[in-house]
């Protein structure tokens, strides 16, 4: 029983950053914006979170700085894609490249420093229940409130939303910023909870997996929850198998999450019936109000 509980805790710990980042990206994509820079926002959140906690000595302030860093990065993305109408795919890649480089530069003096772990509340990392609450909150917001409806509408047809008098660009900025904040927390979780220290490139592709999760979940919050926990299980599985000493090379086990992501994408993308209703129709298309 204890082993099950421990395993579950470990799975939750591994799943939480994916869950947080994917939830944020889901809202961004629902508004019709494809931000491929999750990895970059996340790694900036991680370095800023560590730095914030390191400088102030308060890990909660670290979480705050990680949110701010994620939002700043997403604001940069928003300015390029929404105001300057730059290609969203390219800008997302740029955000990731910049984030990885900038975090390495900023974090240079943090390497090897002892981390400050976010205190647990009666044995539970507070961000774990927070992430679960966010699933319910985001789901309620997207499907039960007018603002959520507006976001979905903007993502479905920006021209129609504009014709009805909605501020397409404004709605998208907010959605992008929310995505940035969530990616920031996800990064902060890595450097303040998961492995409380700063390591260069410590996100190691989690941002990309989160992006895949959004597709895998066909843009539905509770499916993101399921998907994140599935991936948490896969990555823990590789640790467990390694500990068992079955003689499987560690590199093969480490590649399981990446192969699992590909498999998940294939299964879901091939199934048109699952994706057709929820895929935001204007995803990735820049909006230019006509004259």
């Amino acid at each position: 029983m204890d082993i099950v509980l421990t395993l579950l805790t470990i799975i939750m710990t591994a799943a939480t950053p994916l869950l947080l980042a994917a939830l944020g990206e889901m809202v961004t994509e629902r508004s019709g914006v494809l931000n491929l820079g999750v990895e970059g926002m996340m790694v900036m959140g991680a370095v800023a979170g560590f730095g914030g906690a390191y400088v102030t000595g308060n890990p909660w302030l670290g979480i705050l700085t990680s949110i701010l860093a994620g939002m700043l990065m997403s604001l940069l993305f928003g300015f390029l894609t929404l105001t300057l109408l730059a290609n969203q795919v390219a800008t997302g890649l740029a955000l990731t490249l910049l984030g990885l480089g900038l975090s390495a530069l900023i974090g240079e003096s943090f390497v090897g420093q002892p981390g400050i772990k976010l205190p647990t509340l009666s044995g539970i990392d507070p961000l774990v229940p927070f992430s679960l609450v966010m699933v319910a909150a985001v789901s309620w917001f997207m499907f039960r409130t007018k603002m959520g409806l507006v976001i979905r509408a903007v993502g479905n047809s920006h021209t129609s939303a504009h014709a009805l008098g909605y501020n397409v660009i404004g709605v998208r900025y907010l959605s992008v910023l929310f995505g940035g904040a969530m990616s920031g927390i996800a990064g902060g979780y890595l450097s303040l909870v998961y492995t409380p220290q700063w390591v260069e490139n410590m996100t190691s592709g989690r941002g990309w997996i989160a992006l895949a999760l959004v597709v895998f979940a066909s843009w539905l919050p509770f499916r993101i929850l399921a998907g994140a926990y599935l991936f948490g299980t896969i990555s823990i599985l590789s640790f467990v198998l390694q500990a068992q000493g079955l003689g499987i090379p560690s590199q093969f086990l480490s590649s399981l999450p990446y192969l699992g992501t590909i498999l998940a994408l294939v299964v879901i993308s091939g199934n048109k019936a699952l994706t057709r209703r929820n895929t935001p129709a204007s995803l990735g298309q820049p909006f230019v109000p006509d004259r």
Binding site: S204, G205, W208, I209, S255, I262, G270
Partner: peptide, 15 residues
Amino acid sequence: FSANEILTSLMLVYV
């Protein structure tokens, strides 16, 4: 399978 090549090609980098 219309799987997004951005994500799959990137995952294969790690692999």
